[in-house]
Amino acid sequence: MDIKYILPFLDGLKNILEQFGMVGIERSGLYKKDYMAVDKDVTAIIGIVGELRGNVAYSMSQDTAKNIVSSMMMGMPVEELDEVARSGIGELSNMVTGNASILLSENDVNVDITPPSIVFGSDIYFIISSVDTITVDLKTPAGEVEVNIGLEI
């Protein structure tokens, strides 16, 4: 999988988190999976159509999600992932998606990106089979975010 398809989804997240003061984001792992499987409690999934077809999923633990929403709200403590906090994660995903979409078009990759669906739950197992997936672990000040990029290329 060409790096030019992967970087916009990582940089998109980095750019947006930085806007909320979360600096010093590091890549802590990058590996290839035969299929996309995620077992974290909060996952935002976006679909990609056009020149590329596939899905990108951003997954994190509930604690990481709470920390991110707290940063988005100028440090206000977030005790639980209630409706407000959930919509915060939704907003964040929209921003990341929008940013990634701009970065892709700057690289002359013409795709449409669907708005995110966000899945909350416990013991979640999320799977996209038969698509080669690149998984990137990002260390952020809010906690770890796992980015899974599964594209049919």
Partner: peptide, 19 residues
């Protein structure tokens, strides 16, 4: 119309939030 790749999710207390 285009369609994305399908995926599946399992778990308890699953809630999906859309824009």
């Amino acid at each position: 119309l285009s369609i994305t790749s399908p995926f599946s999710i399992s778990g308890t207390n699953i809630e999906m939030v859309f824009k």
